[in-house]
């Protein structure tokens, strides 16, 4: 979900995505590329190469229309899930105080 959110405002290249995700989560960076490839195969991303003057060529990931729809579903699900967890935490902590 996070890689899709990151690409929803603008296209990003692989390294940029990996860097941003690994800033926030403790995961092996190498496993983000399989995810990107899968989402591309499923039609949620298209990719294009851009040669850049400073440094290596960049493979950009662009969210497709399907990808956008899927992202919205995921975000909705996530919001519902996190609201539920928040509620359980709050109720649990209140009981602890009493």
């Amino acid at each position: 979900m996070c890689v899709m959110v990151l690409t929803s405002s603008k296209d990003r290249y692989g390294y940029e995505l990996v860097d941003r995700i690994s800033e926030k989560f403790m995961i092996a960076e190498g496993t983000i590329y399989p995810l990107l490839r899968r989402l591309t195969k499923e039609g949620y991303f298209t990719t294009y190469l851009v040669e850049s003057q400073e440094g290596p060529p960049r493979k950009y990931y662009q969210l497709t229309e399907d990808g956008n729809k899927y992202l919205k579903e995921l975000v909705e699900e996530w919001k519902m899930f996190s609201r539920a967890v928040d509620q359980i935490i709050e109720e649990g902590l209140q009981l602890e105080k009493e």
């Binding site: 692989g14 390294y15 590329y33 490839r37 290596p56 960049r58 493979k59």
Partner: peptide, 15 residues
């Protein structure tokens, strides 16, 4: 294709 993604990753990291 996959290998080239990782090679790109290495080059960006070196930068």
């Amino acid at each position: 294709e996959i290998i080239s993604d990782y090679e790109e990753h290495f080059r960006h990291a070196k930068e």
